[in-house]
Deep mutational scan, measured.
Amino acid sequence: MEVRTIKVFTTVDNINLHTQVVDMSMTYGQQFGPTYLDGADVTKIKPHNSHEGKTFYVLPNDDTLRVEAFEYYHTTDPSFLGRYMSALNHTKKWKYPQVNGLTSIKWADNNCYLATALLTLQQIELKFNPPALQDAYYRARAGEAANFCALILAYCNKTVGELGDVRETMSYLFQHANLDSCKRVLNVVCKTCGQQQTTLKGVEAVMYMGTLSYEQFKKGVQIPCTCGKQATKYLVQQESPFVMMSAPPAQYELKHGTFTCASEYTGNYQCGHYKHITSKETLYCIDGALLTKSSEYKGPITDVFYKENSYTTTIK
């Protein structure tokens, strides 16, 4: 009895394709271990004539594949690729409408935090270190965002349907971005203890939790000093293409032309909904596939993004 075979390709990165001759009487799992086709788990399936010449994702289970996976995804987590594939199996079914010149995501599976993050990423200057993220990001900007969303979920250790947080998501993504040249110098002034300067680099240099107003941050924000008295913390120097200011959701007025974009969060910790506000020729609110415009805006804002380049204080 002759062994019926077909020729397929296996890959971990969709760049390096490895030619395989597979036995049609055995499952993919018996031949390769966990195997995925377009995100779908085909591990328990036997090869079919229609699979001839198709590319299958496999887990990096030998040295060659491990090197290829690390170079593309910059992670050695053995569960990463499987999590990416199972997320992709959902995100490829989502709709990605162009809204006001940006790629958004039609609401499904509690994905409003991903839509808000995706919209924000198209408006701030950011370059990702893992080629996987950078490639998928370019495709997302062009309207094909399924891979990018699935990668975000995998890097953030999230599953489809789980509630997510924009600030946490951005923080994970910033860790995989090139923020080497970003720098922030802060000064804390206390009447009792004097003053202390701190220099922050990388992710810490672009994120701040405690106030939404970048102007206020430049002037000074009140913080408790270690001595128990009130101290003032203010920005001395900022070198970065953008800054992200966050605070627990509270009524906040966004003035046209003073910011790049913002995240609105309605609801409580267990259950809520994100919308995205962007400042173009007027203010726009993007909620999944829905767009509304207004000249002014007041609502429960939790993150505001500002364009920056270089700032030095005039406070002496």
Rank of each mutant, 00 (worst) to 15 (best):
E2K: 15
E2L: 11
V3R: 13
T5V: 10
T5H: 12
K7C: 14
F9L: 11
T11N: 04
V12A: 09
V12W: 10
I15G: 09
I15V: 10
L17A: 15
L17D: 13
Q20T: 10
Q20G: 10
V21T: 14
V22W: 04
S25T: 15
M26K: 15
M26N: 14
T27V: 12
Y28E: 10
Y28D: 09
Q30F: 07
Q31T: 14
Q31I: 10
F32E: 00
F32Q: 08
T35N: 09
T35H: 15
L37H: 14
G39A: 14
A40H: 12
A40G: 13
D41T: 11
D41G: 10
D41A: 13
V42G: 03
V42K: 09
V42P: 04
I45C: 14
I45V: 14
H48M: 13
N49M: 14
S50R: 11
H51G: 06
H51P: 05
H51S: 06
K54T: 13
T55N: 14
F56V: 10
F56K: 03
Y57I: 11
V58A: 06
V58F: 15
L59F: 11
L59E: 15
D62L: 10
D62V: 07
T64Q: 15
L65V: 09
R66V: 14
R66W: 12
V67C: 15
E68M: 07
E68S: 07
E68C: 05
A69I: 07
A69V: 10
E71M: 06
Y72C: 10
Y72P: 05
Y72R: 11
Y73F: 10
Y73W: 05
H74C: 02
H74W: 00
T76G: 12
D77T: 06
D77W: 05
L81Y: 14
L81A: 00
G82C: 14
M85R: 09
A87G: 07
L88M: 05
L88Y: 13
H90V: 12
K92W: 07
K93L: 10
W94C: 04
K95R: 09
Y96F: 12
Y96K: 07
P97R: 07
Q98K: 13
N100R: 11
N100M: 13
G101D: 04
T103F: 09
S104M: 00
I105W: 02
I105A: 01
D109C: 08
N110M: 09
N110V: 06
N111I: 07
C112A: 13
Y113G: 02
Y113D: 07
L114M: 08
A117N: 04
L118I: 10
L121K: 04
I124N: 06
E125S: 09
L126V: 15
K127S: 14
K127H: 10
K127G: 03
F128C: 04
P130G: 03
P130N: 06
Q134P: 07
A136N: 10
A136W: 08
Y138G: 13
Y138W: 14
R139S: 13
A140F: 05
A140S: 06
A140M: 13
G143F: 02
G143A: 02
E144K: 12
A145H: 03
A145V: 00
A146S: 14
A146P: 03
A146C: 13
N147P: 11
F148Y: 05
F148C: 04
C149G: 02
A150D: 06
I152Q: 02
L153D: 02
L153H: 02
A154C: 08
K158D: 06
T159Y: 10
T159H: 11
V160R: 05
L163S: 02
G164A: 03
D165A: 05
D165T: 12
V166T: 07
V166D: 06
T169W: 04
M170S: 04
S171R: 14
S171F: 15
Y172I: 15
L173C: 04
L173S: 03
Q175V: 02
A177Y: 02
N178V: 04
D180K: 13
D180T: 10
S181D: 14
C182G: 06
K183M: 08
V185L: 06
V189A: 07
C193F: 02
C193E: 04
Q197A: 08
T198V: 14
A205F: 02
V206F: 04
M207N: 06
Y208T: 08
G210V: 05
L212M: 02
L212G: 02
S213H: 01
Y214G: 01
Y214A: 05
E215G: 00
F217G: 03
F217A: 09
F217L: 15
K219I: 09
V221Q: 05
V221Y: 03
Q222D: 12
I223Q: 12
I223M: 09
P224N: 14
C225H: 07
T226G: 13
K229D: 15
K229W: 03
A231I: 03
A231V: 03
T232W: 10
T232H: 04
K233E: 14
K233M: 15
Y234K: 09
V236M: 09
Q237P: 02
E239C: 11
S240T: 02
S240W: 01
P241E: 06
P241T: 07
P241V: 01
F242L: 02
V243E: 01
M244H: 01
M245G: 00
S246R: 08
P248C: 06
P248Y: 08
P249S: 00
A250I: 11
Y252L: 08
E253C: 08
E253A: 09
L254T: 01
L254C: 02
L254Q: 05
K255C: 08
H256Y: 08
T258I: 08
F259G: 03
T260L: 15
A262K: 00
S263H: 15
E264G: 04
Y265V: 00
T266R: 02
G267N: 02
N268K: 04
Y269F: 11
C271P: 01
G272M: 00
H273V: 06
H273Q: 07
Y274F: 07
Y274Q: 00
K275F: 08
K275T: 09
H276R: 00
S279H: 01
T282V: 13
L283G: 01
L283P: 01
L283H: 00
L283K: 01
C285K: 00
C285Q: 09
D287A: 01
D287E: 01
G288M: 11
G288A: 08
A289H: 15
A289G: 07
L290K: 15
L291V: 15
T292M: 10
K293V: 11
S294N: 11
E296M: 00
K298R: 11
I301K: 01
I301T: 02
D303R: 00
F305Y: 00
F305D: 02
F305M: 00
Y306A: 03
Y306H: 01
Y306C: 07
K307S: 12
K307A: 11
T312C: 11
T313F: 14
T313I: 13
T313K: 14
T314K: 15
T314S: 15
